[in-house]
Design a binder for these strands. Sequence first.
DNA 1: TTAGGGTTACTA
DNA 2: TAGTAACCCTAA
Length: 206
Amino acid sequence: MEQTGLFWGPVQEEDQGLDGFLGDLQFSLASGTACEHQMATYPARDDDALFVLQLLEDADLDEWLSGGLHQSPLGDTLSHHQMLGRKSGRRGMRKRRISPWGTFVFEETTLEGNREYITRKNNSRWTAKEVELLVQGVSKFGVGRWTELKKKYFKTSIRTSVHLKDKWRNLLRAYQENVQKYTLLDLEPPLVQQIRKLAAKHPYLK
DNA sequence: TTAGGGTTACTA
DNA sequence: TAGTAACCCTAA
Protein backbone atom coordinates (compact mmCIF):
# COMPACT_ATOMS: atom_id res chain seq x y z
CA MET A 1 0.00 0.00 0.00
CA GLU A 2 1.37 3.37 -0.87
CA GLN A 3 0.41 6.57 0.77
CA THR A 4 1.53 9.84 -0.63
CA GLY A 5 1.12 12.99 1.28
CA LEU A 6 2.42 16.44 1.76
CA PHE A 7 3.64 16.91 5.28
CA TRP A 8 5.21 19.93 6.72
CA GLY A 9 7.66 21.16 9.25
CA PRO A 10 9.86 24.16 9.95
CA VAL A 11 12.78 24.64 7.61
CA GLN A 12 16.12 26.08 8.54
CA GLU A 13 17.02 28.66 5.99
CA GLU A 14 20.59 29.19 4.86
CA ASP A 15 20.03 32.84 4.44
CA GLN A 16 17.80 35.16 6.31
CA GLY A 17 14.80 37.01 5.12
CA LEU A 18 11.14 36.75 4.58
CA ASP A 19 11.51 34.57 1.51
CA GLY A 20 13.03 31.90 3.67
CA PHE A 21 9.94 31.44 5.68
CA LEU A 22 7.89 29.09 3.58
CA GLY A 23 9.19 25.58 3.58
CA ASP A 24 7.77 22.18 3.13
CA LEU A 25 8.84 18.59 2.97
CA GLN A 26 7.07 16.29 0.63
CA PHE A 27 7.43 12.56 0.80
CA SER A 28 5.54 9.40 0.19
CA LEU A 29 5.22 6.25 2.24
CA ALA A 30 5.54 2.86 0.63
CA SER A 31 5.23 -0.23 2.78
CA GLY A 32 5.29 2.05 5.74
CA THR A 33 8.65 3.54 4.92
CA ALA A 34 9.47 6.98 3.69
CA CYS A 35 10.71 6.31 0.20
CA GLU A 36 10.88 9.65 -1.46
CA HIS A 37 11.10 13.15 -0.27
CA GLN A 38 11.60 16.57 -1.67
CA MET A 39 12.08 19.97 -0.24
CA ALA A 40 9.78 22.47 -1.72
CA THR A 41 9.77 26.17 -1.38
CA TYR A 42 7.33 28.74 -2.45
CA PRO A 43 7.51 32.43 -3.09
CA ALA A 44 7.34 34.55 -0.06
CA ARG A 45 5.27 37.63 -0.19
CA ASP A 46 3.72 39.54 2.61
CA ASP A 47 0.33 37.92 2.23
CA ASP A 48 1.94 34.48 2.07
CA ALA A 49 3.82 35.07 5.29
CA LEU A 50 0.71 36.17 7.09
CA PHE A 51 -1.23 33.25 5.71
CA VAL A 52 1.29 30.66 6.84
CA LEU A 53 1.91 32.34 10.16
CA GLN A 54 -1.76 31.82 10.84
CA LEU A 55 -1.46 28.16 9.90
CA LEU A 56 1.56 27.69 12.12
CA GLU A 57 -0.20 29.28 15.04
CA ASP A 58 -3.00 26.79 14.65
CA ALA A 59 -0.63 23.83 14.52
CA ASP A 60 0.68 21.82 17.43
CA LEU A 61 4.44 21.67 16.93
CA ASP A 62 5.01 19.69 20.11
CA GLU A 63 2.77 16.94 18.84
CA TRP A 64 4.61 16.88 15.55
CA LEU A 65 8.02 16.82 17.19
CA SER A 66 6.92 13.88 19.30
CA GLY A 67 6.30 11.88 16.17
CA GLY A 68 3.07 13.09 14.70
CA LEU A 69 2.97 14.39 11.18
CA HIS A 70 0.42 16.87 10.03
CA GLN A 71 -1.11 17.13 6.64
CA SER A 72 0.52 20.10 5.03
CA PRO A 73 -1.16 23.45 5.36
CA LEU A 74 0.94 24.52 2.40
CA GLY A 75 -1.30 22.48 0.20
CA ASP A 76 -3.72 25.26 0.89
CA THR A 77 -0.97 27.73 0.17
CA LEU A 78 -0.53 26.19 -3.25
CA SER A 79 -4.23 26.51 -3.91
CA HIS A 80 -3.89 30.05 -2.70
CA HIS A 81 -1.24 30.69 -5.36
CA GLN A 82 -3.26 28.98 -8.03
CA MET A 83 -6.21 31.16 -7.23
CA LEU A 84 -4.04 34.15 -7.99
CA GLY A 85 -3.96 33.16 -11.62
CA ARG A 86 -0.46 31.82 -12.20
CA LYS A 87 -0.52 29.59 -15.21
CA SER A 88 2.64 27.68 -15.88
CA GLY A 89 6.21 27.05 -14.93
CA ARG A 90 7.80 26.65 -11.59
CA ARG A 91 6.45 28.94 -8.93
CA GLY A 92 8.60 31.23 -6.93
CA MET A 93 12.14 31.09 -5.71
CA ARG A 94 14.09 27.86 -5.56
CA LYS A 95 16.68 27.88 -2.86
CA ARG A 96 18.70 25.12 -1.32
CA ARG A 97 17.51 24.57 2.17
CA ILE A 98 18.67 22.61 5.13
CA SER A 99 16.13 20.50 6.91
CA PRO A 100 16.83 20.33 10.64
CA TRP A 101 14.58 17.34 11.00
CA GLY A 102 15.35 15.28 7.91
CA THR A 103 17.53 12.86 9.83
CA PHE A 104 15.15 12.04 12.60
CA VAL A 105 12.15 11.86 10.33
CA PHE A 106 13.79 9.48 7.89
CA GLU A 107 15.76 7.46 10.38
CA GLU A 108 13.05 6.99 12.91
CA THR A 109 9.80 7.07 11.01
CA THR A 110 9.99 3.42 10.14
CA LEU A 111 6.83 1.46 10.49
CA GLU A 112 8.20 -1.91 9.45
CA GLY A 113 11.90 -1.42 9.64
CA ASN A 114 12.77 -3.97 6.98
CA ARG A 115 13.47 -1.68 4.12
CA GLU A 116 16.31 0.68 3.37
CA TYR A 117 15.51 4.33 3.30
CA ILE A 118 15.87 5.70 -0.16
CA THR A 119 17.20 9.17 0.15
CA ARG A 120 18.43 11.46 -2.48
CA LYS A 121 22.20 11.41 -2.46
CA ASN A 122 22.57 13.95 -5.20
CA ASN A 123 19.88 16.43 -4.39
CA SER A 124 19.48 17.64 -7.91
CA ARG A 125 22.46 17.13 -10.18
CA TRP A 126 22.60 13.98 -12.21
CA THR A 127 25.66 11.83 -11.69
CA ALA A 128 27.62 10.24 -14.50
CA LYS A 129 26.41 6.87 -13.24
CA GLU A 130 22.79 7.98 -13.56
CA VAL A 131 23.43 9.25 -17.06
CA GLU A 132 25.03 5.93 -17.91
CA LEU A 133 21.92 4.11 -16.71
CA LEU A 134 19.72 6.46 -18.70
CA VAL A 135 21.75 5.83 -21.84
CA GLN A 136 21.51 2.10 -21.24
CA GLY A 137 17.78 2.47 -20.86
CA VAL A 138 17.37 4.47 -24.05
CA SER A 139 19.49 1.90 -25.85
CA LYS A 140 17.17 -0.84 -24.68
CA PHE A 141 13.76 0.83 -24.78
CA GLY A 142 14.27 3.70 -27.17
CA VAL A 143 12.84 7.17 -26.59
CA GLY A 144 9.37 7.67 -25.19
CA ARG A 145 9.04 4.63 -22.95
CA TRP A 146 10.14 6.49 -19.85
CA THR A 147 7.93 4.63 -17.41
CA GLU A 148 9.30 1.27 -18.51
CA LEU A 149 12.81 2.66 -18.40
CA LYS A 150 12.17 3.98 -14.90
CA LYS A 151 10.92 0.58 -13.70
CA LYS A 152 13.90 -1.24 -15.15
CA TYR A 153 16.80 1.12 -14.41
CA PHE A 154 15.60 3.65 -11.81
CA LYS A 155 13.22 1.57 -9.73
CA THR A 156 14.45 2.85 -6.39
CA SER A 157 15.69 6.20 -7.62
CA ILE A 158 14.04 9.50 -6.91
CA ARG A 159 14.14 10.17 -10.64
CA THR A 160 10.68 10.04 -12.14
CA SER A 161 9.81 9.19 -15.71
CA VAL A 162 9.45 12.91 -16.33
CA HIS A 163 12.93 13.51 -14.94
CA LEU A 164 14.28 10.84 -17.29
CA LYS A 165 12.57 12.44 -20.26
CA ASP A 166 13.84 15.88 -19.33
CA LYS A 167 17.37 14.65 -18.75
CA TRP A 168 17.45 12.91 -22.11
CA ARG A 169 16.26 16.12 -23.72
CA ASN A 170 19.06 18.01 -21.97
CA LEU A 171 21.62 15.43 -23.08
CA LEU A 172 20.52 15.74 -26.67
CA ARG A 173 20.69 19.50 -26.45
CA ALA A 174 24.19 19.19 -25.05
CA TYR A 175 25.58 16.58 -27.40
CA GLN A 176 23.37 16.17 -30.43
CA GLU A 177 23.89 19.50 -32.09
CA ASN A 178 27.02 20.45 -30.19
CA VAL A 179 25.93 24.07 -29.97
CA GLN A 180 26.44 24.48 -26.26
CA LYS A 181 29.38 26.54 -25.09
CA TYR A 182 30.00 24.15 -22.26
CA THR A 183 28.50 21.27 -20.38
CA LEU A 184 28.59 20.79 -16.65
CA LEU A 185 28.74 17.03 -16.96
CA ASP A 186 32.10 15.39 -17.30
CA LEU A 187 31.18 12.21 -19.12
CA GLU A 188 33.50 9.52 -20.38
CA PRO A 189 34.13 9.81 -24.16
CA PRO A 190 32.63 6.37 -24.93
CA LEU A 191 29.44 7.41 -23.15
CA VAL A 192 29.31 10.67 -25.09
CA GLN A 193 29.77 8.70 -28.29
CA GLN A 194 26.90 6.45 -27.30
CA ILE A 195 24.70 9.47 -26.59
CA ARG A 196 25.53 10.94 -29.98
CA LYS A 197 24.80 7.64 -31.64
CA LEU A 198 21.42 7.43 -29.92
CA ALA A 199 20.78 11.10 -30.62
CA ALA A 200 21.21 10.43 -34.33
CA LYS A 201 18.81 7.54 -34.05
CA HIS A 202 16.28 9.44 -31.91
CA PRO A 203 16.83 13.12 -32.76
CA TYR A 204 15.52 15.91 -30.59
CA LEU A 205 13.12 17.70 -32.84
CA LYS A 206 13.25 21.25 -31.59
C1' DT B 1 1.82 8.91 -19.82
C1' DT B 2 4.47 11.74 -22.78
C1' DA B 3 6.03 15.98 -25.29
C1' DG B 4 7.21 20.36 -25.11
C1' DG B 5 6.93 25.15 -23.29
C1' DG B 6 8.21 27.82 -19.47
C1' DT B 7 10.57 29.26 -15.05
C1' DT B 8 14.23 29.38 -11.88
C1' DA B 9 18.66 27.89 -9.71
C1' DC B 10 23.23 27.13 -10.70
C1' DT B 11 27.73 27.65 -13.06
C1' DA B 12 31.54 29.43 -15.89
C1' DT C 1 25.54 37.83 -17.05
C1' DA C 2 24.62 34.34 -20.51
C1' DG C 3 24.14 29.64 -20.90
C1' DT C 4 23.01 25.21 -18.83
C1' DA C 5 20.46 22.02 -15.88
C1' DA C 6 16.55 20.77 -13.29
C1' DC C 7 11.95 20.42 -12.98
C1' DC C 8 7.15 22.36 -13.06
C1' DC C 9 2.93 22.72 -15.77
C1' DT C 10 -0.42 21.75 -19.32
C1' DA C 11 -2.25 19.76 -23.50
C1' DA C 12 -3.03 15.79 -26.01
